[in-house]
Nucleic acid binder design. Structure first.
Lengths: 204, 204
DNA sequence: GTCTATAAGTAGATAGAC
DNA sequence: GTCTATCTACTTATAGAC
């Protein structure tokens, strides 16, 4: 998706805001136009259709999500360091865009066939390397025996879920705690990391 | 939402299926009618409007979700036992209805104002009791010092996220593993419980 | 490139026959 | 209670003026 002109960028930014919040079905071209401060017809002039505009936004979102995983799985680090990097990247990314997880998860569930290809080529390949690495570190005694896929799901769940459940988190913290919501999300970097370290400690 | 007649029940079941899969905006009354094997006009005869029908389904879903939390927080058990019960209930419930988490999370994000009241009265109250209980067990040395809210988010994330990410889990397991998806979800009861036990072990 | 006006199609809802 | 036919409103998309 090329974003040459200024107008095109303005539309794209407005579309991101509306689509990520309301979803494909809930979003209205009129609302995107209002958000962009221009006429509805212009959206079609630059992007032809609602579907095409949505695809642009969605591809960008998928890119942001898989960036976190891919970078981490490519680097030359140990299992624990990789997971820590993954946690840090996601907390930072999702703190700036809390709608991202639900937006992507929804579309994945709505059109799973689109992901067969993407997932098979990228994540599954990197995952294979990660699975092997876990086995090696288990055998060398660096970490204790674990099922790598369960481990990964545990970490992804701990990181991503609280952002998807933002309204609950927000209400609970405002009623019960003296800290801010933003601070709570930042704290999770340390919290989850400690959880990981303890869970993988071979001495336990 | 009363479901007296047989027809009413059939419609309600069809609506649950369509709404939970497509969401309020994505669902079509025609599709619900087709799923129910009857005419579109009948849906309005029994439920007046799409919005009212949706509310019925949604209240039921919220009930199922909060049942897991409330039962657990009411019972007279220790922290670890409560969390284990919570995990078991959720894995069983969500195994039968994998769309439930995303469905509820979406509506919560779309209309957070509706939850201010519900959450404030139910979950937040029970949570208070849970927070206090955690503090007590920490002081008595039964579990190691932890932030109770982070602990709860960790557990909820580990349990709920893999169901929301079903398409990913499904593809990964079918490509990499020799076990079935259903078995993977059942395994999580034990996996998460062990994670909890280790993380709360005061001797570490 | 940007706007106004409008076409074309769709979805929720209702009227009225049976 | 259940159906067919239809109304009304809304939404995407385009035509055409500027």
């Amino acid at each position: 998706m090329v974003k040459d002109t200024n107008t095109e960028r303005i539309i794209f930014n407005a579309a991101r805001k509306v689509f990520q919040k309301k979803g494909l079905d809930g979003a209205r071209m009129q609302e995107i136009a209002d958000e962009a401060g221009m006429n509805k017809a212009l959206l079609h002039y630059y992007f032809r259709s609602k579907e095409k505009l949505f695809q642009g936004i969605f591809n960008e979102s998928i890119g942001k999500i898989s960036l976190g995983i891919q970078n981490v799985f490519n680097d030359n680090m140990g299992v624990i360091e990789k997971l820590q990097a993954l946690v840090n990247i996601y907390v930072d990314t999702l703190s700036e865009n809390r709608y991202l997880p639900l937006f992507v998860l929804n579309e994945m569930n709505q059109h799973p066939e689109k992901f067969e290809e993407i997932l098979s080529k990228t994540i599954v390949v990197h995952l294979k390397g990660f699975l092997i690495q876990v086995e090696k570190e288990v055998q060398s005694g660096k970490i204790k025996p674990v099922n790598p896929l369960h481990l990964l799901m545990n970490v992804l769940g701990m990181v991503i879920f609280p952002f998807a459940a933002y309204p609950v988190v927000s209400i609970i913290i405002n009623k019960n705690m003296d800290s801010s919501v933003e601070q709570f999300y930042l704290e999770r970097k340390k919290e989850i990391f400690e959880f990981i370290v303890i869970a993988l400690d071979p001495k336990k």
